[in-house]
Amino acid sequence: MSMLEETVYNVAKMFSRFPGGRRRANGDFSGEEFREDVVLPLLQKYNRVTFDLTGSAGYSSGFLDEAFGELGSIMPLDEVTRRVKLVAVDDPDAVEIAWERIRDANRERSR
C-alpha cells in the first residue's frame, strides 16, 4: 500500500490542550496514548508528519519522552529526522526535549 505524502497534526487542536502524563495509567491524554493512537498510525499512513505542539498549556518531559522518544528505538535516527518534524512556536524547549529523547533512545538502540 502506498503512503500519502505529508500531513500536519496540531496537538492542541486535535488531541488535547492539556496533555497528560507519561503512561495511560496516569489518566487521559498521556504520552503513551498519543504515541499509540496518533504518532504511530500517522507514520504508517504518511511519509512525512509535522507535529505542531503550539498552543497547548504545556508538556511534561514524561509526556514528550513517551510520545516521541520511543521513535528513536523503533526506526533509525536519519529516518526519524526525515519523516518527523516537530514545531512549537511558543515552547521551543518542548521540541528540544523531544529530540533529545529521540536521540537518547536511538543511542540505546544502537548499543
Binding site: 502524563g21 489518566g27 511534561s60 518531559s61 514524561g62 519522552d65 521551543p92 524547549d93 528540544e96
Partner: peptide
C-alpha cells in the same frame, strides 16, 4: 539558560510518578 530551563523541566516533570494520582 536554555539548558537550565530544560533541566528544570526534566527534574520536575520526568519522574514516572509525576502525574500518578
Amino acid at each position: 539558560l536554555g539548558r537550565l530551563l530544560r533541566l528544570l523541566r526534566d527534574v520536575v516533570t520526568s519522574p514516572a510518578d509525576y502525574q500518578m494520582p
